[in-house]
């Protein structure tokens, strides 16, 4: 009932663990897979080992109002990542290798390594809002996005997903520049800043961070809706998914599946099983036999 396809990739349910949340170590990813996720995107991996920023790297807003983070693309480096993928793969769900580079050659190299390690797809991080020279700084340049996507597509056989930033004046333009990808992942975090007034300074050591959680859901749903209105490409909806209603909302806007991250803070790693169960019940009550029937049904063309 919950099975969906994202391009050629088959998922047992549309609930994928988003990049950056609990997906650095193979053992943790394996545990998430055993707890019901339909797929797992790894932490973004780059050419070299990176420690990330100094603490504080995460700020939690009171009242479940979400998180601001600037981990700083901490990762063990692509050469050290094969074993983690190998362990994660034991979970039996697709593992999508997230990568970040500063140009198309780095992305192509990283993509080839991920494919070699056994990743089922690649997610291009064109959208991290807090790392100089990477992510969003690349992802708002439509020509560079087009070159990166084309180059990686030429170099690997597995599907290539492009994760886009909402921190731009027109996400549809960026989406169109990534049209050669096999899927678009929409959205990454919203660039933000939090100040502790008692300390009289920004909380995060990096000053800026990426805002996530339920408050950004309308931004993500709107981005998915706008892109689906103009493109037929598979879309992964991301941003503020905490319950089954959020999943269905994203899918009705045009997403083929969703990614879930910050909700783990509030609901724990059982969030995937909980959403899957409730989503099935809702679909039965409302006469849907297959989750794919939901995709884009609110679109007016």
């Amino acid at each position: 009932m919950l099975q969906v396809k994202v391009g050629t990739l088959n998922l047992r349910n549309p609930l994928i663990l988003a990049s950056g949340i609990l997906d650095e170590s193979g053992e943790t990813m394996l545990r998430i897979a055993k707890n019901g996720a339909g797929g797992i995107v790894t932490k973004s991996i780059g050419i070299k080992e990176r420690e990330g920023y100094e603490n504080p790297v995460v700020y939690e807003f009171p009242g479940h109002m979400g998180l601001l983070n600037a981990i700083g693309l901490a990762n063990p480096g692509i050469e050290n990542y094969g074993e983690e993928i190998r362990i994660a793969k034991k979970g039996g769900v697709p593992i999508i290798g997230s990568i970040f580079g500063s140009n198309e050659d780095e992305f192509a190299y990283l993509g080839k390594k991920m494919e070699e390690y056994g990743a089922d797809a690649i997610e291009l991080n064109l959208s991290c809002p807090h790392a100089k020279g990477y992510g969003m700084e690349i992802g708002i340049d439509t020509e560079l996005v087009e070159r990166i996507v084309k180059k990686v597509k030429r170099e690997v056989k597995i599907p290539v997903w492009a994760k886009l930033t909402p921190n731009t004046s027109n996400i549809v333009d960026i989406a169109k520049s990534a049209e050669n990808a096999d899927a678009l992942v929409v959205i990454n975090t919203v660039k933000g800043l939090a100040i502790d007034i008692d300390a009289r300074m920004p909380v995060l050591s990096n000053i800026y961070g990426g805002y996530s959680g339920k408050c950004i859901k309308p931004i993500g749903v709107r981005a998915v809706y706008d892109i689906r209105r103009e493109m037929d490409i598979p879309i992964l909806g991301v941003g503020g998914v905490e319950n089954y209603r959020d999943v269905i909302e994203y899918m009705m806007a045009g997403a083929n599946a969703v990614e879930i991250g910050t909700a783990i803070r509030y609901k724990g790693i059982n969030v995937f099983e909980e959403i899957a169960k409730n989503m099935e019940s809702w679909m039965k009550e409302n006469g849907f036999e297959n989750a794919e029937e939901l995709v884009g049904i609110v679109q007016r063309r």
Binding site: L22, E24, E27, R31, K43, V57, V58, I71, G261, G268
Partner: peptide, 15 residues
């Protein structure tokens, strides 16, 4: 790093 179970930095055997 985060202290709230999201960043995977402090994990041991997946916990």
């Amino acid at each position: 790093k985060c202290g709230i179970g999201i960043c995977d930095s402090c994990s041991i055997n997946g916990y």
